[in-house]
Design a protein around this nucleic acid. Structure first.
Lengths: 188, 188
DNA sequence: CAACCGATGTCAGTCGCTGTCATCACCCGA
DNA sequence: TCGGGTGATGACAGCGACTGACATCGGTTG
């Protein structure tokens, strides 16, 4: 694989994360990142579609996680239970990578541009969830609602967790938020 | 106000919408928009922060709508009821501007970049909703969940409405989606 | 009439991103 | 061992989004 210095991609990622943390996302140019990684700007764009994508290369992993979790949920599980299983599985993964996740969230929180990207990735995950639900035979509108609700819970729970610097248990926040959502929506 | 030809801003908006529909968002340059509006590129950026913002100048209006609706909801209303009132008020507005709303959604649906902006505007509306709820004395986590749930419903309902070319009644879709959400979340 | 002020034009420049072509290191078969 | 193939990288030119600085124009005000 690696012909020159190996790990070009991870060197780029490391350089980018460091610079984004040091100087902020907007004030970091791709040329700087490439320089620190010992590569050229052009090479950066061969590894990442754009300057933001460095922080969002994992989602394909999460997509798989979501699909698997929903597919493997017991037949008796309701749509929202299947979704909850997927979200909790994700929460566990984030909890494991606590340090990385927090650094990443810090960077994203400081840049509207990055928040936009984050939101569209979450929307894409919502679509993935809804698809997986439909394959379980869940009706269309219901699948979309369950998926959106799950993502909403994920957002709220993650925010709580990050506000505490990841000291609490993310999975517990997720469970509590699902409870909270149920309580809130019940009162219609 | 207008010294030269009046309505510079609305001319820019009109030109932009037309070109976005004709050639797509990405394939339209700001220079083209300005040319069609009889202005310069620089002037475009004095009226709109960026190329996308032409399609998102209204949200401040929606912000007000949301805040008012939540504030004016009867004291007896539960958080989710207050949110529902706000979403339904918005639905009514969109329904009134059916033609514009559909054109706008068509353009947005064709561009990932525009979808990102749409999502962050919706997130901002969610924050507005949550704020308004907190001012009613609703507890923090509860407010966030109710707001996110409301936006989720709004997304789903709007998608349904647009899929039918706006022929159905958006307010009804909103109400049905709130019902659906309640049904879905109840099954935990 | 003159000073003033806000909206626009002009110009130069930075930066994100892309297409193109050359180059280099490694692998593989003769 | 040598020469060609292959994939990653470098070098360069160029477009378009966006910004800062300054000039200009037109209506307003005193």
């Amino acid at each position: 694989m690696g012909r020159w210095e190996p790990n070009a991609r991870s060197r780029l990622e490391q350089a980018a994360l460091d610079l984004y943390l040091e100087h902020g996302f907007e004030r970091t140019s791709v040329a700087e990142i490439a320089l620190r990684a010992g590569l050229t700007e052009r090479t950066f764009f061969r590894h990442y579609a754009d300057k933001r994508e460095v922080l969002f290369s994992c989602p394909s992993l999460l997509q798989q996680l979501f699909t698997d979790a929903v597919t493997q949920a017991p037949e008796s599980a309701t749509p929202i239970e299947a979704v909850a299983a997927a979200i909790e599985a994700t929460a566990a993964v984030l909890q494991e990578r606590r340090e990385y996740t927090l650094r990443r969230q810090t960077i994203i929180a400081a840049s509207a541009e990055l928040q936009e990207r984050e939101l569209i990735k979450l929307a894409s995950l919502s679509a993935t969830l809804a698809d997986a639900l439909r394959q379980r035979g869940v009706e269309d509108a219901c699948a979309n609602l369950a998926a959106e609700a799950g993502i909403a819970v994920f957002k709220v729970a993650t925010r709580l967790w990050v506000e505490q610097s990841g000291q609490g248990d993310l999975s517990r926040f997720v469970k509590e938020s699902f409870e909270g959502l149920r309580a809130v929506t019940a009162g219609t």
